[in-house]
Design a protein around this nucleic acid. Structure first.
Lengths: 245, 245
DNA sequence: ATTTTATTGTACCATTTTGATACAATAATA
DNA sequence: TATTATTGTATCAAAATGGTACAATAAAAT
């Protein structure tokens, strides 16, 4: 499915995919003290979108989400969580689909698979920015990180999907200790705090944050990190909780 | 679709429903200090199931869930919340479907709609037990309340769906103040506490619970309720939060 | 009519958690 | 050696929570 002719054949015919159901992924990474989201831009259009895809006929929903994310990031065993299903009857737009396909020189017959109604299952993925290798799919010419405050207008209801993902993430952050999935193996307390502040969108008092985190008993203190800065060197920490799959 | 012949026609043919997607509802009520769940039993079988259904081609997902619940309870404007999608590839069993249909004297052709793969979107519904009028669907001969600790083995993955619903409900109880949907218009503090204890599965110290609930500023104190018991009469309260739709 | 009983509403105190400030320690620089 | 910026931790006040106590009271018992 890498060659253009194969691609055309694939999307012209109705492939063996589970009808009516799609997956959209809100894929978050953390870099330069900023939360970033991975977005696609379709070839020869101004349409931005969340990475997404469909479910193979014999594929578990969960597996499909992992497969889709692996194709966009190169990463396996990503931390992925379902957060909502978007099922409005009018969430799609046939013309948009046609323009996207036209951008790839693919003609859509009226009975094309994509022109059916789809509900979309939203997953959010928390990944280690340093390990991901974003790569566009066959229909898009870019797959890039965007700052959360610079998200462009997205296709269909994808902006709403993002909003709901962030809302859920904020709700679950303390409860499930999932923030660590966004950091590399080792990190300083300051990096962890910046992550929390960015996700929650509010400042936290440094000493209290440190007390809380250390009190959870989930951090292993490693050696000090000599940053080269003219001040006391911070410790590095490692997250002791189970690695999520 | 009330007569038997219509029913047969309906299920024999592939109706205009959104393929691959079903809805299952964990419908909870509170009565006699017990949480109850609404379950169906299919005609002439030993199969118990959550009330569920399908989505019409032009129907919003949310609307479909409300419609399905209205058919089983007679209630509109139920408090309904999506909590998870169940999408394992092997969650269904064709023989079970055939037995259920056989119990209704309906023959299933190999290409019958029901024999396709479905993912199921789980909703939990919190309803006022006193207002609901449970009524079975065309395929079942009973639609009844069961105590949570007396739930029989359910069809497919419905026991897991229930478990996940309860887990989500516990998580959301304090955060979203949704428990009130399970009570009638007015209630005593004791009834409210019993509800919380039942959902959370643990005892709460009475005075602290009262302090917490009154402190939220969401309860209006009405007149006293003369229970006829030989003790101080409790106040009745009304929930001041917005009524959920 | 008075006492008894069970439950309610609330006060009270001890403990824990949280919010905010202060300060000694320290890696690099001046 | 002093300076600077940041870190790790201590400390204190305020708020929230857990637990006990007790007066109030509706109906039943005496």
């Amino acid at each position: 499915m890498t060659k253009q002719t194969d691609l055309k054949e694939y999307w012209k015919n109705n492939p063996r995919l589970l009808p009516s159901v799609s997956i959209d992924c809100v894929t978050l990474g953390f870099h330069d003290n900023q939360l970033k989201i991975l977005l696609l831009k379709y070839k020869n259009t101004e349409y931005y979108a969340l990475p997404g895809g469909f479910i193979n006929m014999d594929e578990d929903l969960e597996d499909a989400a992992h497969r889709i994310l692996e194709e966009r990031t190169g990463l396996r065993n990503i931390y992925l969580e379902q957060f909502h299903v978007f099922g409005s009857n009018k969430r799609q737009n046939d013309n948009t689909h046609r323009e996207i396909m036209a951008g790839c020189d693919i003609e859509m017959k009226p009975n094309n698979f994509l022109l059916n109604r789809f509900i979309s299952i939203g997953y959010y993925a928390l990944i280690d920015f340093t390990k991901a290798i974003p790569s566009p799919d066959e229909l898009s010419d870019s797959c890039e990180w965007y700052d959360l405050d610079k998200i462009p207008t997205l296709m269909f209801d994808h902006n709403e999907i993002f909003r709901k993902a962030l809302e859920t993430l904020r709700l679950m952050l303390d409860d499930k200790l999932i923030g660590f999935n966004l950091l590399p193996e080792t990190f300083t307390m300051n990096e962890l705090q910046n992550l929390y502040e960015t996700i929650l969108g509010e400042k936290i008092v440094r000493s209290n944050f440190q007390r809380k985190m250390l009190g959870l008993g989930i951090l292993e203190r490693i050696e000090k990190k000599m940053t080269g800065a003219a001040n006391k060197a911070p410790y590095l920490y490692r997250f002791l909780g189970r690695a999520y799959s």
